[in-house]
Amino acid sequence: MYLTSRASEAKTYGNTILTAEGTNEDVLFLNYQEDIPSIFPGLSYEEEEACRGLQDYTLEKGYKACALTYGNGDIHLIVYDTSFFTFIDLDEEATESIA
């Protein structure tokens, strides 16, 4: 499951916004520009979310999700184990940022 910190970006994938919350201790936080090149040399921007290696790396470290922070401040959360979060709401008209 792939989540983003901006509702406007999420809406590019569909009109329904899932709002959920989880605990930070279950999330591996990585800075895309700093961490990904050292962990996965040569991995392209278009490939990182689907990278099986990132999933394996995250789960082997004991985390259920990986949060990638980009230079523009956007955060993409890639969830590998959905037990990590609690479903809050489905909103088909969401326009505000989600966290």
Score class of each variant (00 low, 15 high):
Asp81Ser: 10
Glu60Val: 06
Val79Phe: 03
Glu47Thr: 08
Ser5Gly: 00
Thr4Trp: 10
Asn31Val: 12
Ile17Gln: 03
Ala10Tyr: 03
Ile88Thr: 10
Thr95Ser: 15
Glu60Asp: 15
Glu46Lys: 15
Gly71Ser: 12
Ile75Thr: 03
Glu34Gly: 04
Phe87Glu: 01
Gly73Ser: 06
Tyr45Phe: 15
Cys51Val: 05
Ile88Arg: 05
Gly22Ile: 04
Gly73Ala: 02
Asp35Phe: 02
Asn31His: 11
Ala20Thr: 10
Glu9Cys: 04
Asp89Glu: 04
Ile75Gly: 02
Gly14Val: 08
Ile39Phe: 06
Phe29Glu: 05
Val27His: 02
Tyr63Phe: 10
Asn24Gly: 14
Ala67His: 05
Thr58Lys: 09
Ile17Lys: 07
Thr4Pro: 07
Leu43Asp: 06
Ser38Glu: 15
Gly71Asn: 14
Glu48Arg: 12
Leu90Thr: 12
Ser97Ala: 14
Ala99Leu: 02
Leu43Val: 06
Val27Arg: 11
Leu77Tyr: 07
Ser8Val: 15
Thr4Ala: 13
Ser83Glu: 06
Ile36Cys: 05
Phe40Lys: 04
Ala99Asp: 09
Ala99Val: 11
Pro41Phe: 05
Met1Thr: 03
Asp26Leu: 07
Ile98Ser: 06
Gly22Val: 04
Asp35Trp: 09
Ala65Phe: 08
Lys61Gln: 07
Asp81Arg: 01
Asp56Arg: 14
Val79Arg: 00
Phe40Met: 00
Ala99Cys: 06
Ser97Tyr: 13
Leu28Ile: 01
Glu96His: 10
Leu28Met: 03
Gly42Trp: 00
Glu47Cys: 12
Leu28Glu: 01
Glu25Ala: 07
Ser8Ala: 15
Ser97Cys: 12
Gly22Phe: 07
Glu92Gly: 09
Leu77Glu: 00
Ile88Val: 14
Asp56Gly: 07
Ala7Leu: 10
Asp56Ser: 14
Ile78His: 00
Phe87Gln: 01
Phe40Val: 01
Ser97Gln: 13
Asp74Glu: 14
Arg52Pro: 09
Ile98Gln: 05
Leu54Trp: 00
Ala94Cys: 15
Gly22Arg: 09
Gln55Gly: 03
Thr23Gly: 11
Ala65Lys: 00
Ala50Arg: 10
Ser5Val: 03
Ala94Met: 10
Ala20Val: 09
Asp91Cys: 03
Glu9Asn: 13
Thr23His: 13
Tyr13Ser: 02
Leu3Ala: 01
Ala50Leu: 12
Thr19Ile: 02
Tyr70Arg: 12
Thr86Lys: 00
Phe40Pro: 07
Thr82Gly: 03
Gly53His: 10
Tyr63Gln: 04
Arg6Asn: 08
Asn24Cys: 11
Glu48Asp: 15
Glu47Ser: 15
Pro37Gln: 08
Gly73Ile: 03
Val27Ile: 14
Met1Ala: 12
Glu49Ser: 01
Ser44Gly: 13
Ile17Leu: 11
Tyr63Asn: 07
Val27Glu: 02
Thr82Val: 12
Leu68Gln: 07
Tyr57Arg: 01
